[in-house]
């Protein structure tokens, strides 16, 4: 069961979006999220929505994969909606006990929910169309300026990609440990929370011990292969912008101008 967990949430297929440079996609997602906070009215939302819809169609990723990301924040969505609908003062439409539903509340609530939905779908579109490797590569390049502030950008990207590689190994190990402990009578299915928590200890301790050992071994192996940080390091697959990327940047800029212009005009 545990082994079924897939790596990241990359969806393997061929599409224009899949072929684009990860740096572009990261910057694009960032701009899109900013644009969501700039829009003020229904036209703005329409523009943002159509833009997103076009991207979804271009990505060739089945829509249900995008919606999957929403499940995780369902509670947040409902909470945001309800709080806004009931607690915004304004023209009362319906009264339920002590709470009033106001026209303004409906407006603000629905906007907040739409904004969140767009935000989540927009960012999962990035992870769905970019392999974890390219994503970390892109992140490292995009965040490079932060090195000036002494942030360990290269190291963080390295850690991320190593962590991704180790997830299947650790999962396998976890599986093994759980089986070993079940064989000794550990009870993972108990209804009682205290028993469940207790049963986690004999799993986590060996898992941590072995993870520490692995980390040590891996660091030695990396050093043996001349690893000495990001300084002077080259890449097997360096990131290179192609024509499609420049066109995409252009589209992105046009979209952003449209959003801003729309906010000023209306």
């Amino acid at each position: 069961m545990i082994r079924d967990i897939t790596l990241g949430q990359y969806y393997q297929t061929e599409s224009v979006l899949h072929g684009l440079d990860p740096r572009l996609k990261i910057i694009g997602t960032f701009l899109y999220i900013i644009s969501l906070f700039l829009v003020r009215d229904i036209f703005g939302y329409a523009v943002a929505g159509i833009f997103l819809a076009v991207l979804i169609v271009l990505s060739h990723v089945p829509f249900k994969f995008m919606v999957r990301g929403l499940k995780g924040i369902l509670v947040l969505l409902i909470f945001t909606g309800v709080v806004n609908v009931f607690l915004t003062p304004g023209e009362v439409l319906v009264s339920v006990w002590k709470f009033n539903i106001t026209r303004e509340g409906l407006k603000v609530g629905s906007r907040m929910v739409i904004r969140l939905v767009f935000l989540v779908i927009g960012s999962s579109l990035m992870t769905l169309t970019t392999t974890p490797n390219r994503l970390t590569d892109g992140l490292e390049r995009v965040l490079k300026p932060l090195k000036r502030l002494k942030l360990p950008v290269h190291e963080m990207a390295m850690i991320m990609s190593i962590a991704l590689g180790f997830i299947p190994i650790l999962i396998e190990e976890l599986d093994k440990i759980m089986k070993a402990q079940s064989a000794r009578g550990a009870d993972f299915e108990s209804k009682k929370l205290s028993a469940r928590i207790k049963s986690m200890v004999p799993i986590l301790v060996p898992l941590f011990v072995s993870a520490f050992r692995r980390a040590g071994d891996l660091a030695t192996a990396m050093e043996a292969r001349c690893y000495h940080g990001g300084e002077g390091r080259t890449k097997l697959k360096p990131l290179r912008y192609r024509r499609a990327d420049y066109i995409a940047y252009l589209v992105l800029i046009l979209y952003f101008i449209l959003i801003i212009a729309e906010g000023i005009i209306f």
């Binding site: 590689g165 050992r213 071994d217 891996l218 990396m222 292969r225 690893y227």
Partner: peptide, 20 residues
């Protein structure tokens, strides 16, 4: 505990990458 890349070819490239 000595494989660093998530794809075989990327792992093999790790050493030369470090050497520049």
């Amino acid at each position: 505990n000595q494989i660093i890349g998530t794809v075989v070819e990327e792992d093999v490239a790790f050493g030369p990458e470090n050497m520049g």
